[in-house]
Design a protein around this nucleic acid. Structure first.
Length: 414
DNA sequence: TCTGGGGTCCTAGGACCC
DNA sequence: TCTGGGGTCCTAGGACCC
């Protein structure tokens, strides 16, 4: 079999995305330690300066924060204090109480997300969404704008060509949003993602196969996308710290300790191998809503409040299904108790639905199968086994003999 | 000072079918 | 009578990602 031609994949990652969007709105916070997170109670309060008549904004700080929120994004100045995303804000307040706290504004981030993705798409149309603030871009057959000056030679080296396209992407993103991004270019998504991390923020990094040993192998194993805290802790107890050490490990030994898929993945990843395509369209697999309460609720004493929240979550899932045009055949319930133990229950229906009452009924059946002997901190409702609403008839036929929904187009995802 | 909300993928056992 | 083997679906839990 002939070797597949080399691909040029870019990973475009917006720098400190949520925080950077907020700084566009509040430029006076540039250079300050700022974190985004928590509820709506932390909007800055705008007043008028009695002397100058100018507008003065009063920002909340972490100092007086009380609650269960976590940081979603920290500016680089805040990161210097050890603050980072997913850190509890109570803990962050201990470390850096004077850090400015801003509430999340997902609508704004979604707007900027669309702007930056559209700007990239205009240059390179084959992009894969990877969350609100990052994408993979296939640059393999993308050429830079024709040279504007006769002094500029057309690029013959494909790496130089990809570099020029990435440069154009950075400029276009900046022009469209006023925000900076970091781009990594490599022969596959795995390496492109790692490359984009290497020179953050505002980086542009080429990672050729021959660079892997020098730039990737010295990194700790958890820098590989897919090796998280559990795997990296286990690797460490097995004497594997760096990606180089992981690459040197016997693949059979990795499979023995981490299972077939994960063990094989680790070995391939350490060698920079990944043949995953840039997926330009992806169907959702599940749609869910969940809520962590401000205080743990007792199943008995707070029954009414829990019931109300439960119903609202089901309505929310129903709304999301309808808005996105899907029906779910499996309804799931998620409970987290005060000791952080999490349980889930599923119920597969005979017919996919987006009806809030059907969802509520199915989730209620799931709830009956959970022993409620502790206080509850989180409740969640999920719809899985999604069908495109357009492909499923409006309801079960009255004499539905089996449980297979009628699909107008049987090729759609089940 | 306990740890958000929205997702994806994998594993493993049991049911059920051929 | 001592028991197979593959495939798919369902369920529960867990790791991981942004």
């Amino acid at each position: 079999m002939p070797a597949p031609p080399i691909r040029f994949i870019a990973h475009v990652d917006m720098d400190a995305f949520y925080a950077s969007v907020e700084l566009l709105r509040y430029p006076e916070l540039n250079g300050r330690a700022v974190v985004i997170g928590g509820g709506r109670r932390h909007e800055p309060i705008t007043t008028t300066d009695p002397v100058t008549g100018g507008t003065v904004r009063n920002f909340s700080t972490l100092r007086r924060y009380v609650g269960r929120g976590v940081i979603t994004t920290a500016t680089y100045e805040a990161r210097a204090f050890g603050l980072h995303s997913a850190m509890g804000m109570m803990k962050a307040a201990q470390l850096a109480p004077d850090t400015i706290l801003l509430p999340v504004d997902f609508d704004a981030y979604r707007r900027y997300s669309r702007l930056f993705k559209d700007a990239v798409r205009a240059i390179a149309p084959r992009i894969q969404d990877n969350g609100i603030d990052e994408i993979y871009v296939d640059l393999t057959n993308v050429h830079p704008e024709p040279a504007r000056s006769i002094l500029q030679e057309p690029k013959s080296d494909p790496w130089e060509r990809a570099h020029a396209v990435a440069r154009a992407i950075k400029d276009a993103v900046s022009a469209a949003t006023g925000l900076s991004c970091s781009i990594g270019i490599a022969p596959n998504k795995l390496l492109a993602k790692m490359a984009s991390e290497l020179d953050k923020p505002d980086g542009l990094t080429l990672l050729r196969p021959e660079d892997i040993e020098r730039r990737i192998w010295p990194l700790p194993a958890h820098k590989i996308n897919g090796i998280g805290p559990k795997s990296s802790a286990k690797l460490e107890t097995l004497g594997v710290r760096t990606i180089a050490e992981l690459a040197a490990a016997d693949p059979a030994w990795l499979v023995e300790h981490f299972g077939r898929a994960h063990g094989a993945f680790m070995h391939d990843a350490a060698h920079g191998r990944d043949d995953g395509d840039v997926l330009t369209k992806m169907e959702p697999k599940s749609i869910s809503r969940e809520l962590t309460f401000e205080r743990d609720l007792s199943p008995r004493r707070d029954r009414d409040e829990l019931t109300q929240i439960f119903t609202a979550l089901c309505t929310g899932v129903s709304d999301d299904l309808k808005r996105k045009g899907y029906l779910g055949k499996t309804i799931g319930l998620k409970l987290r108790f005060d000791n952080f133990k999490t349980v889930t229950r599923d119920r597969t229906l005979d017919w996919p639905t987006d009806d809030p009452q059907v969802i509520r009924q199915a989730a209620g059946e799931c709830l009956k199968r959970v022993p409620l002997d502790r206080r509850i901190r989180l409740l969640g409702v999920r719809a899985g086994a999604l069908f495109a609403a357009s492909a499923v008839s409006a309801g079960p036929p009255p004499d539905a003999a089996d449980s297979t929904p009628w699909l107008f187009d049987q090729s759609l995802p089940r």
